[in-house]
């Protein structure tokens, strides 16, 4: 989905801060939230795609104003409710207040994953173009490369297509590629001499 998480290329966010002596967890609740997500994801057998999509479905204002581990907490609670481990009213009663969860899944469940692609369609050096589409569900194709042309610079192994695994138990495996884009192809005034490499699944691409 073209959600709030897909921020590549957005402007106006300001400089990124850096603190070299940062603790792994700033407060204990962060460590607990992180562990709870692992527990919930294990209990409901959530794939990486389903977990990431649970974060992407957060209300945009909440997403931007919550830190990393609050997003993990929200994903953990959302998956726990959606899979019937707990109810929202139980969570709110225990928390003594509102417990914001992520929004509903907009994509239909995937029942038929289709036939996997065993052999890479593209080779190193091939020119490819990213399909221009706007899936309502999870995808690992950032919006800023859609419709843009690049060159395959590495062919990797077969991996489960996140767009499918996020929406059910069906799985399809496809080759992934590292595709190199000229920054000027992605951004009209892109910096000279800058290349952006993006890992993309076979079904995201067409021959250019």
């Amino acid at each position: 989905m073209d959600g709030i998480h897909d921020l590549g290329g957005r402007q106006g966010f300001g400089a990124v801060g850096h603190s070299p002596a940062e603790p792994v967890f700033h407060q204990r609740w962060e460590a607990v939230a992180r562990a709870l997500l692992e527990i919930v994801a294990g209990a409901v057998e959530a794939s990486g795609g389903e977990f990431r999509h649970a974060i992407e479905r957060m209300e945009p204002g909440h997403y931007l104003t919550s830190g990393y581990y609050e997003r993990w907490l929200t994903a953990a609670a959302t998956l726990a409710v959606e899979h019937g481990l707990v109810t929202r009213s139980e969570l709110e009663a225990r928390a003594g207040g509102r417990f914001p969860l992520s929004g509903p899944v907009l994509a239909a469940p995937v029942v038929d994953a289709g036939i996997g692609v065993g052999t890479p369609r593209f080779a190193v050096g091939d020119r490819v173009r990213v399909r221009e589409w706007h899936p309502p569900g999870h995808t690992r194709c950032p919006g800023y490369v859609r419709g843009r042309a690049g060159t395959v610079v590495r062919v990797d192994g077969l991996y489960s297509v996140p767009d499918i695994e996020a929406h059910g138990t069906a799985r399809r495996h496809e080759p992934t590629y590292s595709v190199r884009f000229d920054a000027a192809e992605l951004w009209r005034d892109g910096q000279r001499g800058v290349w952006v490499h993006v890992d993309l699944w076979d079904c995201y691409l067409e021959r250019s």
Binding site: A33, L73, R94
Partner: peptide, 18 residues
């Protein structure tokens, strides 16, 4: 509030022996 939410989820999952 976020600590309360973490504690709520932890308590409920603990009660369910997860």
């Amino acid at each position: 509030p976020v600590e309360q939410r973490v504690a709520a989820l932890e308590a409920l999952l603990t009660e369910r022996r997860l």
